[in-house]
Structure formats: structure tokens, C-alpha cells
Design a protein around this nucleic acid. Sequence first.
RNA 1: GCCGGGAUGGCGGAACUGGCAGACGCACCAGACUCAAAAUCUGGCGAAGUUCACUCUUCGUGCGGGUUCGACCCCCGCUCCCGGCACCA
Length: 830
Amino acid sequence: MSEKTYDPQEIESRWQARWAGEALYQAEQSTEKPKFYVLEMLPYPSGTLHMGHVRNYSIGDALARYKWMRGFNVLHPMGWDAFGLPAENAAIKNNRHPNEWTRANIAHMKKQHQRFNFSYDWSREVATCDPEYYRWNQWFFLRMFERGLAYRKKALLNWCPRCNTTLANEQVIGGNCWRHEDQPVEQRELDQWFLRITDYADDLLNDIAHLEGGWPERVLTMQRNWIGRSEGTEVDFALAAHDGAAGGGKIRVFTTRVDTIYGATCVILSPGHALVNELASPEQQAIARRMNEDAKRKDPGDLEKEGFFTGHYAINPYSGERTPIWVGNFVLMGYGTGAIMAVPAHDQRDFEFCRKYGIPVKPVVRPADGELAVEATMKDAFEDYGVAAVAGEFSGLPTEEAKRQMNAKAEREGFGKAAITFRIKDWGISRQRYWGTPIPMIHCAGCGVVPVPEAELPVVLPHDINLADVKGSSPLSHVPEFVNAACPKCGGPARRETDTMDTFIDSSWYFYRYCDAHNPNEPFSGDIVRYWFPIDQYIGGIEHAILHLIYSRFWTKMMRSLGLIDWDEPVTNLFTQGMVIKDGAKMSKSKGNVVDPDEIVGRYGADTCRMFSLFAAPPERELDWQESGVEGQYRFLGRVYRFVTRNLEKARSVPNIRVPEVAALGEADRQVLRKLHLTIRKVTDDFETRWHFNTSIAAIMELMNEAQGREAELTEASLPDLCGAVAMMLAPFAPYLSQELWTELGRDGLVFKQTWPVFDEALAREDDVEIPVQVNGKLRSRVTVPLGTSKEALENAAMEDAKVREWVGGKTVVKVVVVPDKLVNIVIKG
RNA sequence: GCCGGGAUGGCGGAACUGGCAGACGCACCAGACUCAAAAUCUGGCGAAGUUCACUCUUCGUGCGGGUUCGACCCCCGCUCCCGGCACCA
């Protein structure tokens, strides 16, 4: 039979047409099989897939197909993170409605997905901009509101005076507006909705322990840092009497080192602290305002410490000392209480500040095995723990013990308490934007803030809107039909909430909806998600290590509080793939180094594109895109295709794989089958452990090299097994070609639903092994012996080897290291 | 500054548990096929030295030490690159 030319466009379009409309990848609802939920992060429908997507999905798809072949009931869904600002920008720029723009993008990207033949169960597709989806965002919001988990408060927002709108934190670059790079962002105080993620701060931190091993360590570290739990003490410094502050005014500070409080030589307020306006002169208040703005604009590393003395004093409740009150630009308003006690002798930042302004430095803690430092000679703060040397009644205690006793005293006497502070803040979810989930609340002059009754959900986003003319407030506030509503309580005229929700809400629970995507009565059925959860494998980019992945964990814990589910964590295993780079830089439009997947597919086919993205580097590392490497993959697939098609007659002759008698095989068949089973072991092992598909593909290449080298002597004894197994091993990586080969071989059905080939020890075993022989650790010769040769026999064989004799002859053999089937090392002297 | 990750041929990378460094691919060189080219196939390909030649020797995994019969791998001390966090009291 003559070989055929590999024509990926013909093969791929033929199978695509044949599979169109067929539900090949549907998960089963009831089955005896074990379940496997593999998930890739849903994309924002920007318009086209980029190589980062292709890489992400190629990894997930390989795993999904492999799991099918290992007999799992696989859930592998896909959807669209369809709300967000780019749709609004595009709407203004192109005079196109965000919905229309988004839907067109989804349609195009879905076509691209299907061209790649990623194995998604499209019957579960979710677009977060569908009212059927976002109504459940609203439903969750109401549940949280009922429990006080959603609340409203005033908060500072970033405001660009030229855009005349608020900006998200990520849209503030170096203190300036992302659209107007020379325009500093202002702060405005507005009412905002918040979710009480801090209620779960301890759970989010503690449950990280359950994720160890399944999640990359660095993601867990980043989350721990983000949550930023620290144990310490809150202490009140009373304002000194002559300040005239009526009613016993006080300054509450947070410290992790209350044991050093006898060394506090001043109290420092953040420039944003409420007391600044009471204690500072008008001139000083102006300085404080300038400091606030500097802090917003500048990189904290470039900001020099500065401050001023307010002229007022506070009383240290432990020592009774009068302590000057300063304002300092390095004290953060957003952390702790916005005020600190400065202990320059034991905190480097305080040390730098106090030395600059001539504030005394007072050492109070000495090293466990040393002397108390002397102020005049101190070059740096002593930050270690030790013994409280100057601490009134606590003097002489180890610092840890001093802390405990001093906490107890604060509590006893009512001027403070042990306290835990978190870096993580409640999640501000209000966005003054159009293209998002409407917050289901109504503002009534008489009744206040009233939730929309559940029966009226969803609160649908109005279609008619003029985004271009909207200035300075939420677009929805300009739509009277939307805004004007009857108060659900009193029936009087009222206004709807016009802010929409942060889109991170959409992506915090979408993977639950996949399980029961069309449920009209509830976000999902508890029974169905109990079957599929937790997610066995989540795959995505490292850039979501904090935001999305913390919000998702929070949402799961929140749903547990609501009684919807009964587990703590949504994702058992997380895999973060590396970036795709080209010419040493991340692909980006501004760098002009973007490779368009469509173009690669058009030139080489989807299989080649997928193969290369898996072959060029291990998945967790950066991938360097090289066009010539893509061609190499294309050549390899062509080589496989031609090999199989020109050997079809023999390869087809046996309908199913069976194990031939080893002894009866010819040398070529024997060696190729041996290599085949080594390859099966290798590829299987890669799937089961570390997903280094680059080495899996390399192993299959080696196998094909071996087969092609012995092609003339191969017979029906090996070719059916070889070709069938190669088709199956390629199935996770190159779905079109593998199916084509499978069908050409005369086998029935879908290749990725076959049983994964099984490693056969007997066929893989080698009769003889070549053993390297070293002399003093250097390779000097090799001897060939039967596998399993004993230590003694192996040593004898090595010593008899002619080359070894040359090296060893006349010298004293000190020692011989023999590792059977591996190596011999002869240690000589003289 | 703190916390991760990394450094191996001209390039991407392999060596999984301390046991033949450079698998596999790319690029390059040579040959076969061809009028020619493309495609395909075959061979070579870390560096230096040596041999007519098969070959052989020495060096070689960022740098300096150490452990070991044996180190890309383990330990100690550095350098550089990438990423994250960064006045969090």
C-alpha cells in the first residue's frame, strides 16, 4: 500500500464536519465510573484566542482525553467571563452595543475553540452576561445581605477628573490615570457595597494547609501574604490633659511588639488619621494632605520618611510617660488603626524616622545573651526577641512572656487588648459601570435601602443606553426606566441601585454552575455538585494567584455558611502554566511579537499547533515560541502519518492488540515492541506524575525513529500493536491525526474513548544490558551482560575487559563498586 | 529589603531516587533523490588536542569550596537573570 501525503487541512476539516453537532464530550450524569473534573480558567471574550489560551487549553485537553482513556467520567466545561470594561470601551469607540460586541466575540472564539477541537462539553456553556447566570449573582447577594455579609459603607475611590469617572485600583498606574498618563488620580469618598471576606480571613488562611501538595507553593505563599494575619496588641494612649480634649480623647495604636512599649518615644499618626484635623494646625493639615497625595502617586520605596510634631502629647498607659504626637508619612491609614507607637530602638523604620528628627532612641530589650544597647552608639534598631530589660514590673521577662502578661494587663485595666490584624480588606464590589450585574437593591427615601424581592430577580440590565454621553456617574443612573422603581416595602417611589458588581463575582462560582448549567430554580442542585466537587484539576495562569483564587475560595466558604454545600475548598489541585514568550518578551501588541493562532492553524493545522505548545517546554515553565520548532512538529506528524499509511496492509491485519509470543518474534519486531512498551511506560508516567508532555512527545518521536530504522523488517507481529498504540498515545495531543490513523487502521469508534495502552513488562524487558565501567569515577569501557547478572559475575566481566585491564594493570585495586544492571566503578591507587 | 523560581551545546530543552551529561527537536554541515529546487531520506554536529584511520586523551552543566567510589543532582558561601511582595507596625 502506498503512503499518503499528510494534509492536515483536509483531515481536520473532514473530521470537524463529521463531528459538527455531535455531543462527543458530554459528561455522563449517572455512571459507575469514577468522576474527574478538569477545568481551565474561563476566558474574557476579547475577540480572539491568543497563544496563552491555546497553551492553557492544550494542557487541560490532553489531561481530559487521557482521563477518558483511563475510564473516568470526565467533566470538561468551558464558558465566558463576559462582563467587563473593555466591552464598554469598545462600545464607545465603535458605536456598538456591549452586548452585541460581546456576543460576536464569543461566537468567533467558540469557532476557534471548535477548530482546535478542544474537548468541551458545550451543553454546559455559561456566559456570565446572560440574565440566567447573573440572576444568581443577585440571588447570592441577597442571601449575603440578609446575613450581614454584604453591607454598605463610605469608602475612598480613585477618581480621574478628566475621565470624570472612578477607576479600579488596577487602572491606576503609578498614581496616574491609565488613559491620561500625566493625570494624577484623586480620592473621592463614596458609598460602596462590600462583602465581608474578612469574616473568613482565618478560614482562608488556615485551610491553606489542606491545599498543600495540590497547589503550587508560591501561590499559597502569595495568598498567605495577601491575607497578612498578624497577632499583636491594641493600646490606647490617652491625650494628655492640658490638650483640652474633652471626654478623655485617646489614640489607639496597633503593635506586634507591646513588649517594647517602654521604649516608645513618640506616637505617630498616619496623615489620613481622623485626629490630624483636630490636633494639627491648618498649615500642618496642608502638609498632611500633600503627604496623602504623594503616597498615592509614588512608589513607596522612593518615598522619604518625613513628618511633623503636632505640639500635643499622649500618655503611655504602661509607663505613664508623656509622649509627643507626630504625624508621619510612612504610617499607613489602611492598616491596623492608622496610628503607631514609635519604638526606634527596636524597629528599623521608627529608628530612621526618629534619628532624622532628633527624637530620642531608648533601648528596652536586650539580647538573651548580651547587654542592653547604648543609644549613642546604635547604628540600627535591634529587632530580635530577647529579654525585656526596661519594662517596669515586666523587667527581666523573656519578650514572649512579657507580651502575654502585658496583653493581660491591658485587658484587665481596659486600655487595650490582644488583637489580630489582617492585611486583607473587605471586598468592595461596587462599580460605576454599565456592563456588569446590577446590584439588586432599591433606595427608598422612607425605608432606606431595601432588597429587591427574590421573585423579581433577575434585575435585568436595560439594553438601551448611551454610554458616550455618560459623565461622572454610573451609566445606569441615566436610564430613568431602570432607575425609577416602587419601594418593595412601602410601594412609594424609589430609586434602584445603579452601580454594578465587580466581575470577579462572576468568576467566583461559575464552576459550580457548569455542573447544573440550566437549572432555572436555583444556582445549582446540591446533589449534582456533590457528585462533581471538588474540582480535581484546575489549570490557569499565575496572574490569578491572588484575586480570582482567593475570591473563589471565599465564595465556597460563604456558600457553605448558607448551607448550599458542605465542603471548604473548591479546588484540590491547581496547576499554573508558564507564559508564552517570543524574542525574549511576553507576547503583546505593543511589542509586536504576537503570534496569531489562526495563522498557525491555517498553515500547519490545529494538531501541529497543539503539539508544539506542549513540546517546546514543560508546561509550568515559560514557552519560547519559535516558528522553526513548529515546523519540526509538523514534520513529525507528517512522518507518523506516512509511516502508518504505507504500512497499512500489515498494520491492519489484526483487529485488536494482543500480546505475541516473545520468543517467536523476529529481531526487528522484538526491538520495536520493546521500545513501544518503554514508550507506553514513559508517557503514562508523565501523565500520572508531572505532566512533562515535552518528554512524552520526545519519547514517541524516539519510538518512531526506531520503527522507521527497522521498517523493512517489521511484520504483522508488531505493526498493528505499534500503529494502534501510537494513535492512542497521540490522542491526548493531536486529536484529529490520531482519529484519522485509528480509522485508517480499520479500528472502530473514537480513539480518545479507547482504553489506554497497557505497559507489558515481558515485552519491554531487554535480554542484555550494556554496563558502563568506570575507573576512579571516569568512564573507561562498557561491557554487555545478561540482564540480572549477579554482582560477582558483573565484577568479573568488568575486570576481564581488555580496556579496563589497560587502566587497572599494575595498580592496586582499593575497592570495586558494583550496582547490578547499572554500573561498575573500580577504585585504584598508584 | 523579603519570599519564590531559574542558570546545561549556536537555540528550545533532556537526564524522574546521587550512577554513561547533552535524549528529542530546531539551526547548521555533508550526502542520496532531482535538469534544478522544494519535499523526503541517510549521516555528522559541546570544546580543545591527537591519529592516515577506526580511535583515543583532556576539559566541560553560572562562580568558589565541601561531602562521596562517583555530583547538573546533596551541603556551605557567592554572582547574575526572571517573577511576586514591599514602610503591614
